[in-house]
Amino acid sequence: MDNQSQTPQQKVEFERKQHKEEMKQQVISFALMILFTFIAFGMVLLDIGSVFLVPTLLLLAVVQVLFQLYYFMHMKNKGHDMVAVMMYGGLAVAILTIIAFTTIIWW
């Protein structure tokens, strides 16, 4: 957006629209996260076989973490590239370590 050519009135308007959009996204992701939590609890309560259960729980957990990071902690917004690089870098090292331990050391 070009601040120079906008009147203060337009700017306020624009920001309000942005905030509304932001709010909508946060509510949607919040609702989805609650839903995911119910699904997860439900699956455990209903005793679904663990072959299917564990990967699904992990998947739901990962999606929830991503919602947290991108929508609630604003990683989807601009200026968070370095944060993302660092987080994924650290994640890569951690996962590599876990893979090494589970495959090489313990089989």
């Binding site: 090292v93 370590t97 090494a100 331990f101 090489i104 050391i105 313990w106």
Partner: peptide
Amino acid sequence: GNAIIWEHLFWI
């Protein structure tokens, strides 16, 4: 326990 764990952690 497992002594090799130290080696891996140390070299990681």
